[in-house]
Design a binder for these strands. Structure first.
Lengths: 126, 126
DNA sequence: AAATGATGTAATATTTTCTTACATGAATGA
DNA sequence: TCATTCATGTAAGAAAATATTACATCATTT
């Protein structure tokens, strides 16, 4: 369902709409952007334009704040999520080559025989 | 999927966004509203706010116009659609009563025996 | 040719949003 | 406790978006 993702990431909402949907003040929304928690686009006239994904994230941020997590904490949460996503993307980007397979088998044998491979595999192993 | 319908009918888009999504001028959009082909909501400051359904309809209108159908024609098309929808809603609103069933059976017998019922059933028959 | 239909354009008012700056109350840390 | 920091409110002034109204235009219909 690629089209759905596209729809949800389309920046079509002005800040006034987002304020109502997320029940946040313009000040709060702009502050969260300043803190790099969201990254709304800008239209030709420099107005912020938000996507449905942005709204979802704002609602998430609200929840985290309600749970007593502060900006720094939320920032870290998203940093880790993005870290994980980047890793998965990298994994997907390069499927296993025959050479990878040989190296994996080689490392496996080293492990079994009690030796330690110098570097963990930087490709998907499952 | 009631929530989806709700989402699609939420008036969240300003006219500037709609202009881009439907590739129509503000003049055209306002004119179609004047012709009662769309009915965007208004926010507290009197700005038109459109739903995704509104955008869909605008794209439909564009197609009809491209096919050479004029405002009057499009208006009629929507009038008939709304007519049909109203009828279906009415049908759904009143489920069959025991009495309806008896009348249907009665009419069926009349038909079989070559007679004609005075009035067609005004309730769903399937 | 005159009228109508669909759209463009201009003028002016109002609303929305932007940035920047300062204020504030709660929580934190020295 | 006193000074900071954090998260948010508020105000001011500028710029952008939108509203309404009126007139222009070009094609089609009558």
């Amino acid at each position: 369902m690629k089209e759905k993702e596209l729809r949800r990431s389309l920046a079509v909402l002005p800040i006034g709409t987002v304020m109502k949907l997320a029940n946040l003040s313009a000040r709060q929304i702009r502050y969260y952007e300043e803190q790099d928690l969201i990254h709304p686009e800008r239209n030709a006239g420099n107005r912020r334009m938000f996507s449905l994904n942005d709204v979802d994230r704002l609602l998430e941020i609200k929840d985290y704040l309600a749970d007593g997590i502060n900006m720094a904490g939320i920032k870290e949460i998203y940093a880790q999520q993005q870290q994980k996503a980047a890793q998965q993307a990298a994994d997907l980007a390069r499927p296993l080559t025959d050479n990878d397979v040989r190296r994996i088998l080689h490392d496996e044998f080293l492990n079994i025989s009690g030796f330690k491979a110098k570097n963990g595999p930087e490709f998907p192993t499952h």
